[in-house]
Amino acid sequence: MAVKIVADGKLPPLWHYGHEEHDVIASKTFGFWLYMLSDALIFAGIFAAYGVLDHTMNAAGGPTEAQIVHPIAAFWQTIAVLSSVFAYSLATVALKHGNRLGLMLGIVAAILLGGVFMALELKDFADLYAQGATAQTSGFLSAFFLIIATHGLHMIFGLIWLLVMLAQILRLGLTAPVVAQLLNLRLFWQFQAAIWVCVYVFVYLKGAI
């Protein structure tokens, strides 16, 4: 492709003198979305590991899938995490209308419901440990605890972030960076619900088949 020559004297503009606009919010949320994709691939790797280690031989004579998953009990966790995500999503609707109180109430509700989720999960862990089913018992149990714990760690991180956002709203107000963070947190929190769908179906339900 040869270089295009323009007609004499008809040079198009060479420099852009306009004011430099920088969409802070779109820039931050796109970068965060990309991070979420890499986070999703962490889970892909973990699910691949689980797919390899969930056979009977990986239980090394210890508890197998069917013996440790309780889908009905885990459904309460499902309700908790989905409600927490729903509460935060509604909080961002309040943000849309500039309703600061609604926003903060939604965040508090999300924290509480997320706390319920973590409490249920930790109780489940404690019960399993009491039965002697620990991550050190077998390869299968290592993989099982890995999936649940990785999701749980993300949840804890999100709960801390929710608390920090409460402080930021109070201290900085609804500036562009703070709003961008709230949107990022929405992506992160909704992502936890999406991952939980996979965890619930492919660990708890699949284990009970």
């Binding site: 691939l41 790797g45 090394a60 210890g62 050190q136």
Partner: peptide, 29 residues
Amino acid sequence: FPILGVALALLGADRYLGTHFFTAGMGGN
């Protein structure tokens, strides 16, 4: 790179926490 993170994290779990992702025995692969 996330998959590398997973591979090394699982190895780290074996080395630090006594899990059995990759051990020769006890259900590792």
